[in-house]
Computed example of a mutant assay.
Amino acid sequence: MSLNLAQIDRVETITKEDFIKNYFKPQKPLVIERFIEEWPAYSKWNLEYMKEVAGDKIVPLYDDRPVDFKDGFNEPHAKMKMADYVDLLKQKPTKFRIFLWNILKEVPVLQKDFTYPDFGLRLMKGLPMLFFGGKDSYTFMHYDIDLANIFHFHFEGKKEVILFDQQQNKYLYKIPHSLITREDINFSNPDFKKWPALKKAKGYIANLEHGNVLYMPEGYWHYMKYVTPGFSMSLRAIARKPKNLSKAIYNVFVMRSIDNIMRRLKGQKWIDWKNEQAILRTQKTIFETKK
């Protein structure tokens, strides 16, 4: 048995009007296959090019270790020169990923290789972020703190993406006061005996290749697995739905503060309690739906 996942719609290209009507307004994900072929980045951006232009930069690295109470919000697990990291990616599988690396700030010359596309949404131009990963590395299932509309441009290699909307929260073993699900769930091959509620979740799946653009609507959960070494860039537009915008403000100014305070006060007991609550609350929801 596998997750209940529909293939994400795919188009070669799309007009702004069709995108707004068919995907943004109904908040439906989309893969656009040939939207950026006129960008210099389309032909230039690969791992070797990144090594060439950013080799001396020290980059933050993350792996798949469980959250520890001593870890700060988005605090990296290691750091390395970009040149050494690219060499590592090419030599062997590694769990180390680059997460939320601001290329505009770190390597301004890369800004010349792309333009901000007009999808009918106002993109935040100060926040183009790069994400790198080695073969079989992955991100935990999570959604972004600001519940933004995200355009994810993939370069080099292949990546598997699994998405869920916020309506599926009750089936995903969501960690309270957090943006992630239980970290011990393998969304590529879930154990339904251990995580039975996942059988009720309805989501989406797609495989991304070089030049593909993935649109993720506001607040969508996403799990990304690097089938081969590669990297992507995300551009984002602020959440437009009032409910999502208010939730984003709560996450940034309230939820994150509560979590940080409780980590300092309770330490690992707070993390363990949250992990236990993820199971108990999901089981309670499933029990109530059976009544």
Rank of each mutant, 00 (worst) to 15 (best):
D56G: 02
G267T: 03
K269Q: 11
M255I: 02
L179K: 05
S246M: 15
F35A: 01
Y138L: 12
K21W: 07
L121D: 03
E75F: 10
H154L: 05
E48D: 13
L280S: 11
P108W: 02
L89R: 00
Y220F: 15
K193Q: 14
E160D: 14
L130W: 01
K105P: 05
Q277K: 15
F287W: 09
L3F: 04
N244M: 12
K44N: 03
P190C: 08
M1W: 05
K158A: 03
E48I: 06
D136H: 06
M233L: 08
T282Q: 06
N46Q: 04
E288F: 12
Y62I: 05
Y85C: 02
K112Q: 15
M233A: 05
M224Y: 02
T228S: 07
Y49G: 00
T13Q: 09
L179N: 10
D84F: 01
V67M: 12
S257E: 13
T15L: 05
K200V: 08
M255V: 06
L235N: 07
K28P: 03
P217H: 01
K193H: 12
K92M: 09
K158H: 06
F140P: 06
T282Y: 06
S137E: 00
K158E: 07
Y204I: 04
R97L: 03
P117G: 08
F155S: 00
Q111W: 13
M141C: 13
I261N: 08
E106C: 10
Y85A: 02
Y215P: 09
E106W: 07
V31I: 10
M216I: 08
D146V: 09
T228A: 02
K57S: 09
S232M: 00
D184G: 12
K200L: 13
P60R: 10
N212S: 12
N22C: 12
L88N: 02
P66F: 07
A278K: 04
T13Y: 08
G55R: 01
A83T: 11
W101K: 01
L100T: 12
D118N: 13
S43K: 13
N22M: 09
E48Y: 04
L89C: 02
F287R: 13
D84G: 03
I175E: 04
D84W: 01
K21R: 15
V109M: 05
L88M: 15
I205N: 11
A206Q: 01
P128V: 00
F153D: 00
Y220H: 15
K266Y: 12
M262P: 01
W270V: 02
A248C: 04
V109K: 00
Q7M: 14
S188I: 08
D136Q: 11
L130S: 02
L147K: 10
K243A: 14
G72W: 07
D184C: 12
P93T: 03
A83L: 10
V227K: 04
E17R: 14
H142R: 10
L89K: 00
L172I: 04
K112E: 15
K95T: 09
D272H: 01
Y220L: 14
T282L: 05
I271K: 00
D56R: 03
N74C: 11
N102F: 06
V109Q: 03
M233F: 04
Y62D: 02
Q167M: 13
H222S: 08
Y116W: 12
Y23A: 08
F114W: 04
I238S: 12
R263I: 08
K291N: 15
D56E: 11
P229T: 01
K243W: 10
